[in-house]
Design a protein around this nucleic acid. Structure first.
Lengths: 157, 157
DNA sequence: TGAAAAATCACCCTAAAGTATGAAGGCGAA
DNA sequence: TTCGCCTTCATACTTTAGGGTGATTTTTCA
């Protein structure tokens, strides 16, 4: 088998060629470095174009396309219990006035006293008075109970 | 009058000349094109970058824009028939736990928080916490609204 | 037309409801 | 075993609801 020295002599030309190539590459690199500014100028130019036209593309897309829309259907549940029939007998029996019934209905819809007051264009205190009378007549202590009872008596839907 | 063949023979040279001119112009155009490509390599390169990045920009914009969402309220009518059937789908959908449902039921019966707490052997604060979570999940602000919504969703009788 | 009923409102006070935040223990799924 | 969810509870604070009382103004109807 041939030793390392033998290997070197046998491939001398190839090695030299390799070294020559390396040097050449180095020179080229050096030259490239010298023209760094020029080269970079080009790259900067190209980069600027890239950035600018990317922006242009985005702008174009945003301006000229119809906005994507996703339709989300939100379910609103509504009662359809045929027709609500007000129990007028009970109403008379309990001596509940129109206004009180009105307040009762709004109450059952989840409105606060203030909201009811605003809706009926009266003061908060008035609603409180109506409530007090209602609770008395319905023999309950809270609005939630009033709603329960009123529904059972078919005073409200 | 002369026929078509006569016309061709009489103007043979002119036609040939025309053809020759056409070919020459075509050649020139072709040469011009080659010339353009060679001498305007940079411009072509820049143009390519521009086109490419415009496309990139458009792609980016289309891909990364959040679609606008439009809420459409859809009315759902619920029949209130004899036996109460718990809407478990809605229950799962709204992520309401058993305990919360329990509180909701008692709430709808007109019980106060303290009464619910006593009935379930827990503290008042616990009920308040359950309520807060319930209101959040049902997207309501008050217990009366919670009852309203829950009834419509068939979460409670 | 005058009394009764209904509707309106105010004030003060208490109770209940609701908000916000933090935390601890249990329990089942990954 | 860790992680997320449920359940529990607490503290502190704000808001709303409700009670009691009294008063004025409409409306209704005999």
């Amino acid at each position: 088998m041939a030793g390392p020295a033998n290997f070197l002599t046998r491939n001398k030309s190839i090695i030299l060629y390799g070294i020559f190539l390396a040097v050449l590459l180095f020179l080229l690199k050096w030259l490239e470095l010298r023209f760094l500014i020029i080269n970079h100028a080009f790259e900067i130019y190209a980069g600027s174009i890239a950035v600018l036209f990317t922006a242009l593309g985005i702008w174009l897309a945003l301006k000229l396309t119809k906005p994507k829309t996703i339709l989300i259907e939100k379910e609103i549940f509504t009662e359809r219990t045929g027709a609500f029939i007000l129990n007028e007998k009970e109403l008379t029996k309990l001596n509940i006035s129109k206004r009180e019934l009105e307040v009762l209905q709004l109450m059952s819809e989840g409105l606060s006293n203030q909201e009811i007051a605003s809706k009926l264009f009266v003061s908060l205190n008035t609603i409180k008075t109506h409530n007090a009378r209602l609770f008395e007549k319905l023999e309950v202590k809270r609005r939630t109970q009033a709603i329960e009872t009123a529904k059972k008596l078919s005073l409200i839907p």
